[in-house]
Design a protein around this nucleic acid. Structure first.
Length: 817
RNA sequence: GCCGAAGUGGCGGAACGGCAGACGCGGCGGUCUCAAAAACCGUUGAGCCACAAGCUCGUGUGGGUUCGAAUCCCACCUUCGGCACCA
C-alpha cells in the first residue's frame, strides 16, 4: 500500500531542493546549444493572479521541454517595478512606493516559486533598482547623443486621472481613453521628450525572419500605417508655399480647393480681413472641442473660407483655401488638396459649401457623368479626363497608370515628388510622475540641454518627497533635488523633473537578465553574444502596438548605436489568451469573479493547477475558469501517481503485448513532443491522459516487467514539463538518480509504431459502410478485392462494376458505383 | 468603413481534404460501502427502432469544388480584437 498523492508535502520539498542545488541556474556554455526562453515580467501589484499562471506555467513547461531536449536554457524572471499604482497608493495612504514595491516583490517572488517554475532567480532584474535604471538612463543618454531623443513643444495626450502625458500608443479606443485607467484623455500643449521611432518605421514593417503571430504583425503594420503617394507644393497668391501629401496625385487636376487644419501655421497669413473674425471664431470653437467630438466621423463636415487663394500647380487655376477640422495637424502636413469628385470627405465638404466638383476619373459605366451631377465621390477605376497630359491614361497605381505618370510630371516640373507618410508617431516618453527613472538631462542657461555624464549615472530618485495630489511630480516640488550644476560649465543648472515611461524599462529588460549586476555596461557582452537573441517570447497580445513595437525600436536603435547586434530582439513570439471568470466575463473585483491561484494551489497543488491551465484551453484563446473542469487533471495526477509506483519485478508478457505497449509509449512520445513544440499544451495533456489510460489497461498483464518499467518511466519523463514536482517525486520513488529534470527527453522511434494489420475503412460513395483488416502497405489490388468482398459492401455494390475506387493505404477504400 | 480572428454535443475543447466530437467535465448505469464520498469499470451527438443490427440527420447560413469537406473556394450572418475624417 502506497501513500496517497499529497502535493502539499512533495511540492515544497522539491522546490526547496531545486533551489538549494541551483538546479535551474543557467550559465554560458559554448559547447551546448542555447535557448533563451522569455516570458513577460509582472508588475509587482501585490498578488499574482491566475492570468500570470496561465501565461507563465505553460511557458515554463516548454522551457523545461527544451532543456530536456539538450538545450542550455535561460528562463529568467524579474519585475517591471516602476509605475503609477505604487505612487497613487502612496498619495492615498502615505506608504512609500519603495517600501510597497519591494514588499510586494518579496511576496510575489514566493508566489512565483510556488508555481514550480524553472526561473533562474540569480538573474532576477528589478527595473526600479538603481543598478537597473542607471542603464535605462544610460540608454536615454545614448539616444539623446545620437539624435534619437529630442524635446518638443506640442499638443499631447494628457490623462487627467493619471496626471501625466501618454504616448500615442497608450491612448486606446474610439473614446481615446488611457490604456492604464480607462479615463478619456485630453489635449495639453507641453514640452516633452520623444524618441524618433518614426525613423525606424520602414524597418519595423519588415518582419522577415520573425516567427510572430500574423495578428501581431498585422496590428503593427496597421499601426505604423505606411502610405505611399506624393508631396505637392502649392503656392498661395501671397507667395507662401503650402505642402500637401496625397495618395492620389493623379487627381490633382480635379483639386478645386484646399483645406488646412485650423492649427496650420499659414492660416493667419492667408486669412483676409473680411474673413478674420469668422476664421478666428472657427479656430476658437475647434480648440474647445474634445478630441473625440472633433474626430467623430459621424459629425457633419464644417469649415470656414480664409479668403485666401492658392494656385493649382498643374492647371494654374486660382483655388480657394479653407480651414476645416476634418484635416488633422498631426497627419501628413496638416494641409490637403481637396478633390471632391474622388474623395468622400472632400465631396461632402464641397456639397455643403457649394464648391466646384470636377470629374477627372471617368468611371467605366458612366460615360456622361459630370461633377455637378455626381451623387457621391467616385474612388474606383476609370480613365483620366480633364487632366491635360494625363488624359486617356488608366487611373491606378500600377506601372504606366495615372499615379506614376502624375508623380513623373510633378518631378519634371519641380512641383512635387513621390513621398511616403506614416501614421506612426514618435514615442513620447516624459511622464509627470515620481515613481520612474528620472530623465537624465540638465538644463543650463548657457549650454541648454546637457546629458548627465555616464559616470554620474544613475540620477537617483530622491526618497524624501511629499505625497500630494497636486498633479505635479513630487520631483518638481522637492526643494533641492532639481538644483545641480552644469556638467559642461559647472554653473548652477536644473534637472529635468519628469520621469521616463515605464515601457522604456521593459524595452530592454531582457538584456539586463543577462547580467543583472554588471557594472561596466547595461549587460555583459560575453553573455549577450551567447544568449541573444531571445528564441521564444511569450506574453499577452495586448502589447502588440506598445511594448512589442517599443522593444523592436529599442533594439534597432541600439544596434545603430553599436550597443546590440542583429536585426531583431525576439525571434519567436507566441501569445496566450485570457482566463475569464467562471461566468465567462473578464475577471474583476467588482464582478466578484476573480479566481485566486493561491486558493487553488492549496486545494489541488501547483501541478494540478498547471495541468488544468495547460489542458483546459487552446492556449492562444483562453476561456472561462471552471471549478468543475479542474477535476479532470486533478484525477489524472492521482492516476499517474497510482500507476507509477515502483512495482517489483516480473517476467515480460507475451510479444504481442510488449509490442502494443511499446506502440502506445512511442505514440505518446511523438504526440507530446510535437505538441509541446507547437505550444499546443491542451493536447499535450490529453495525450498524456490517453497514455496513462492505456497503461491502466496494460497493468494487469505487464506490471513489473522490464517493458512496463520503461513505459512508466517514459510517462514520468513526458509529464515532467507539465507536472515537475509529481514527476520528480515519482522519479525518485522509482529509484532513479536526481533529477528527472536533468534527464534526456525520450526519443521517438517510428519503428515501434509498425503493425502487421491495420483497420481500413471501406466507404461506398463516400459513406463508411464497413471496416476490414489489411497490412498497412497492402497493394491497391489486394485492398480493392478485400473491400469488395466485405459483406456490407458486396450488398450495396450489388454486382455492379465500380466506376472508381479510391485507395489511401492504411486508411480507407472508397468504392464509387 | 478598413485589417484580423473565431463560430463543432449540455459544457471546456480534439480532428495532415479521409471513421466528426479525441481528451476531460457533467449526466446515466454498475462495483465497493450499512450508507455516502472517494476510487474503479461501463455508457453518453440527435432522430427512426421494443432492443439490436441498420438507416437518416449533424461542425453558424446558402452555394460550389471533390470519389470524399469541420477542413479548400464564393457569398452572407453572428461574436470578439485592433484601427478609423490618415488625405
Amino acid at each position: 500500500m502506497t501513500d496517497r498523492y499529497d502535493p502539499h508535502v512533495i511540492e515544497p520539498k522539491w522546490q526547496a531542493r531545486w533551489e538549494a542545488d541551483g538546479l535551474y541556474r543557467a550559465t554560458v556554455d559554448a559547447n551546448r546549444p542555447k535557448h533563451y526562453a522569455l516570458t513577460m515580467l509582472p508588475y509587482p501589484s501585490g498578488n499574482l493572479h491566475i492570468g500570470h499562471w496561465y501565461a507563465m506555467t505553460p511557458s515554463d513547461a516548454r522551457a523545461r521541454y527544451m532543456r530536456m531536449k539538450g538545450y542550455n536554457v535561460l528562463f529568467p524572471m524579474g519585475f517591471d517595478a516602476f509605475g503609477l499604482p505604487a505612487e497613487n497608493a502612496a498619495i492615498k495612504d502615505g506608504i512609500h512606493p519603495i517600501e510597497r514595491t519591494y514588499t510586494n516583490i518579496d511576496h510575489m517572488r514566493d508566489q512565483l516559486k510556488s508555481m514550480g517554475t524553472m526561473f533562474d532567480w540569480e538573474r532576477e532584474a528589478i527595473s526600479s533598482d538603481p543598478e537597473f535604471y542607471r542603464w535605462t538612463q544610460w540608454f536615454f543618454s545614448k539616444l539623446f547623443q545620437n539624435g534619437l531623443a529630442y524635446k518638443k513643444h506640442s499638443p499631447v495626450d494628457w490623462c487627467p486621472q493619471c496626471q501625466t502625458t501618454l504616448a500615442r500608443e497608450q491612448v486606446w479606443g474610439e473614446d481615446r481613453h488611457c490604456e492604464r485607467c480607462g479615463t478619456p484623455v485630453i489635449k495639453k500643449a507641453l514640452d516633452q521628450w520623444y524618441f524618433r521611432t518614426t525613423k525606424y518605421a520602414d524597418e519595423l514593417l519588415d518582419f522577415d525572419g520573425l516567427d510572430w503571430p500574423s495578428q501581431v504583425r498585422d496590428m503593427q503594420t496597421n499601426w505604423i500605417g505606411r502610405s505611399e503617394g506624393a508631396s505637392v507644393v502649392f503656392e498661395t497668391e501671397s507667395g507662401d508655399q503650402i505642402e500637401v501629401f496625397t495618395t492620389r496625385p493623379d487627381t490633382l487636376w480635379g483639386a478645386t480647393f484646399m483645406v488646412l487644419a485650423p492649427e496650420h501655421p499659414l492660416v493667419t497669413r492667408l486669412t483676409t480681413d473680411e474673413q478674420r473674425s469668422a476664421v478666428g471664431a472657427y479656430i476658437e470653437a475647434a480648440t474647445r472641442q474634445t478630441e473625440i467630438e472633433r474626430e467623430s466621423t459621424e459629425k457633419e463636415k464644417t469649415g470656414v473660407f480664409t479668403g485666401g487663394y492658392a494656385i493649382n500647380p498643374v492647371s494654374g487655376e486660382r483655388i480657394p483655401v479653407w480651414i476645416a477640422d476634418y484635416v488633422l495637424m498631426t497627419y501628413g502636413t496638416g494641409a490637403i488638396m481637396a478633390v471632391p469628385a474622388h474623395d468622400e470627405r472632400d465631396f461632402a465638404f464641397a456639397r455643403m459649401y457649394g464648391l466646384e466638383v470636377r470629374l477627372v476619373v471617368r468611371p467605366p459605366d458612366s460615360p456622361g457623368l459630370n461633377g455637378a451631377a455626381m451623387q457621391e465621390a467616385w474612388a474606383g477605376e476609370g480613365v483620366m479626363v480633364n487632366s491635360g497630359p494625363l488624359d486617356g491614361i488608366a487611373a491606378g497605381k500600377g506601372d504606366g497608370q495615372s499615379v506614376k505618370a502624375a508623380i513623373a510630371w510633378l518631378k519634371e516640373h519641380g512641383r512635387g515628388e513621390g513621398a511616403v507618410t506614416y501614421r506612426l508617431r514618435d514615442w513620447l516618453i516624459s511622464r509627470q510622475r515620481y515613481w520612474g527613472a528620472p530623465i537624465p538631462i540638465i538644463y543650463c542657461p548657457e549650454h541648454g540641454q546637457v546629458a548627465v555624464p555616464d559616470d554620474q549615472l544613475p540620477v537617483v530618485l530622491p526618497e524624501d518627497v511629499e505625497w500630494l495630489p497636486t498633479g505635479q511630480s513630487p520631483l518638481k516640488l522637492h526643494p533641492t533635488w532639481s538644483q545641480t550644476t552644469c556638467p559642461a560649465c559647472g554653473r548652477p543648472a536644473e534637472r529635468d523633473t519628469d520621469t521616463m515611461d515605464t515601457f522604456m524599462c521593459s524595452s530592454w529588460y531582457h538584456l539586463r537578465y543577462l547580467s543583472p549586476h554588471f557594472e561596466k555596461g547595461p549587460f555583459d557582452p560575453a553573455e549577450y553574444d551567447y544568449w541573444m537573441p531571445v528564441d521564444t517570447y511569450t506574453g499577452g497580445a495586448e502589447h502588440a502596438t506598445m511594448h512589442l513595437i517599443y522593444t523592436r525600436f529599442f533594439h534597432k536603435a541600439s544596434r545603430d548605436m553599436g550597443v546590440t547586434k542583429g536585426p531583431e530582439p525576439m525571434l519567436q513570439l507566441r501569445n496566450q489568451g485570457q482566463i475569464l471568470g467562471p461566468d465567462g466575463q473578464r475577471m474583476s473585483k467588482s464582478r466578484g469573479n476573480v479566481v485566486d491561484p493561491d486558493a487553488q494551489v492549496s486545494q489541488f497543488g501547483a501541478d494540478t493547477v498547471r495541468a488544468y491551465l495547460a489542458f483546459g484551453y487552446e492556449w492562444s484563446e483562453g476561456g472561462p475558469w471552471s471549478d468543475n473542469n479542474i477535476q479532470g487533471p486533478a484525477r489524472w495526477l492521482n492516476r499517474v501517481w497510482g500507476i507509477a509506483q515502483p512495482a517489483g519485478s516480473a517476467a515480460e508478457p507475451d510479444a504481442t503485448t510488449v509490442q502494443s505497449l511499446k506502440r502506445a509509449q512511442h505514440i505518446a512520445i511523438r504526440d507530446v513532443s510535437d505538441d509541446l513544440e507547437a505550444f499546443k499544451f491542451n493536447t499535450v495533456v490529453s495525450s498524456l491522459m490517453e497514455y496513462t489510460n492505456s497503461l491502466y489497461r496494460f497493468r494487469e498483464v505487464a506490471e513489473g516487467s522490464p517493458s512496463w518499467a520503461e513505459a512508466v518511466d517514459t510517462l514520468v519523463l513526458l509529464a515532467a514539463p507539465i507536472t515537475p514536482h509529481l514527476s520528480e517525486e515519482l522519479w525518485s520513488l522509482r529509484g532513479h538518480p536526481y533529477s528527472v529534470h536533468q534527464q534526456a527527453w525520450p526519443v521517438f522511434d517510428p519503428a515501434m509504431l509498425k503493425e502487421d494489420q491495420v483497420e481500413v475503412v471501406v466507404q461506398v460513395n463516400g459513406k463508411v459502410r464497413d471496416r476490414i483488416m489489411l497490412p498497412p502497405e497492402a497493394p491497391e489490388s489486394a485492398a480493392t478485392a478485400a473491400a469488395l468482398a466485405a459483406p456490407r459492401v458486396a450488398e450495396l455494390v450489388d454486382g455492379k462494376t465500380p466506376r472508381k475506387v479510391v485507395y489511401v493505404a492504411g486508411r480507407l477504400v472508397n468504392v464509387v458505383v
